[in-house]
Design a protein around this nucleic acid. Structure first.
Length: 421
RNA sequence: GGCAGGUUGCCCGAGCGGCCAAUGGGAGCGGACUGUAAAUCCGUCGGCUUUGCCUUCGAAGGUUCGAAUCCUUCACCUGCCA
């Protein structure tokens, strides 16, 4: 799907929070396949929702005929991008190398490595590790006025609390990446999250100062809830893309629970549905919000992109079984067991079934017995969809659904299963 | 280097010898209302073998029947002076 100008598409999807020069960029993108890059620092063993915006944006640009360079920050990950809350803890080389491989593996499925505009994976460790300090300070450092570096928002916010020279220098490395990719591969566009804007423009400046050439930058917006707080948090933490860190079921549930006001925006950013389809879904969400057509489409689309169609079907089936409101005993054992494994399951001995409080802790629905006890006293604890009011209640083998399962629920929407063996 | 002030539970922030596991706000969690939404209201919010016990108020010592609260030393932060 080659659009006349992909920039219009990105703007319509709300993906451009800042850009260096929109008119110049538009004509640049209209003149053929532009080589662009986007970087990911390995700061955790998995990428999350925020990175997904970048990955999908890269895919959109590639689909429009442009050529992606996906960069993993083997070098920048060793240094750490300054953040407002404080100094980062340095990770060991082994850790960073491990995470680089994981991150790389998460990006690759989204891009095409074949054809005229095949994607390329690069690692900035390759050109940074052997760089001499003298060369770095003379060739790169000379182009960075410290007074300008001090004026950046992130740096300024850290001057009181303190910032190490290490983090202060981060922007030089990222700018060097852009310069190198520009020189060696003809890359002329970098994009990243809006919190990266300073780093993006620094790279554009460096290319101009060092080589006298023009480059472009785009910043995508930070995803926020309607109350302004950051998106992408679940009970367990970030919205990780790694199924080991966040089950496809939990991932699917996150999107399904998105607020009505945000459905349209999220559909534009996180799916490849076309304008007409999104317009229909927005209309349905406004007219019949209780049907949550937008949320369902969003959850299915994004989960399929990240985890595949099979996992999506299983997540949906699990949700249907658990939230169906029907009699649990009416479900087939296979369906029930699959649903509970999706939601999270533990196993106990059927010889001595633990009390409801212990079961909640065992199944991960409560962090401590105190919390489990509290949940019971608050009326938020359910066994097989029946509220339990006695924290010392001990289920019997008669309670086992399908012969071996106990269905636990906390509050309205947190399910877990316990298998009695 | 000198003087003054600070360091409290996930975050912000009270407390200034016993009634303190520690006021209040935010986040989180549960309930009501709903649509597995938002808003609102109510409750809850260190751990445990839970009418009690244990571990917390920057760190380590000390005074006292008893300390988050007093004293000493150390670490870090802030302000004023040099």
């Amino acid at each position: 799907m080659s659009t006349p100008n992909v920039l219009d598409e990105l703007q319509w999807r709300g993906l451009i929070a800042h850009a260096t020069d929109l008119d110049a960029l538009r004509s640049h993108l209209g003149q053929g396949s532009v080589r662009f890059y986007v970087g990911f620092d390995p700061t955790a063993p998995s990428l999350h929702m925020g990175h997904l915006v970048q990955i999908l944006t890269a895919r959109r640009l590639q689909q429009a005929g442009h050529t992606p360079y996906a960069l993993v920050g083997g070098a920048t990950g060793m240094i750490g991008d300054p953040k407002e809350t404080g100094e980062r803890t340095l990770n060991s080389l082994d850790t960073v190398k491990d995470w680089v491989e994981k991150v790389r593996g998460q990006i690759e499925p989204f891009l095409s490595f074949e054809g005229a505009n095949a994607a390329t994976m690069v690692n900035n460790y390759d050109w940074t590790a052997s760089l001499s300090v003298i060369d770095f300070l003379r060739d790169i450092g000379k182009h960075f006025p410290v007074n300008r570096m001090l004026a950046r928002d992130v740096v300024r916010s850290r001057l009181e609390a303190g910032i190490s020279y290490t983090e202060f220098s981060y922007v030089l490395l990222q700018s060097l990446d852009f310069l190198n990719l520009h020189r060696d591969h003809g890359v002329t566009l970098q994009f990243g999250g809006s919190d990266q804007w300073g780093n993006l423009t620094a790279g554009v400046d460096l290319i101009r100062r060092a080589d006298g050439e023009r480059a472009h930058a785009i910043a995508t917006p930070l995803m926020t809830r309607s109350d302004g707080t950051k998106y992408g948090k679940t009970e367990g933490g970030a919205l990780w893309l790694d199924p080991e860190m966040l089950s496809p079921y939990a991932f699917h549930q996150f999107w399904l629970n998105v607020e009505d006001e945000k459905v349209g925006e999220l559909l534009r950013v996180f799916t490849f549905l076309r304008r007409g389809e999104i317009a229909d879904l927005e209309r349905l969400t406004a007219e019949e919000p209780w049907k949550r057509a937008g949320q369902k489409a969003l959850a299915d689309e994004v989960t399929t992109l990240v985890h595949g169609a099979d996992e999506t079907e299983q997540a949906k089936a699990a949700a249907a079984a658990l939230f169906g409101g029907g009699d649990l005993h009416a479900l087939s054992t296979t369906t029930l067991a699959a649903a509970l494994r999706e939601a999270g399951a533990a196993s106990v001995s059927r010889e001595a079934l633990p009390s409801i409080v212990d079961l909640f802790v065992e199944a991960g629905l409560a962090k401590s017995k105190g919390e489990a006890r509290r949940t019971v006293s608050e009326g938020g604890a359910y066994l097989n969809n029946v509220r339990v009011e006695d924290p010392d209640h001990v289920p019997t083998t008669d309670d086992l659904v399908g012969g071996s399962w106990l269905v636990l629920r906390r509050g309205k929407k947190h399910f877990a299963g316990v298998e009695a063996r």
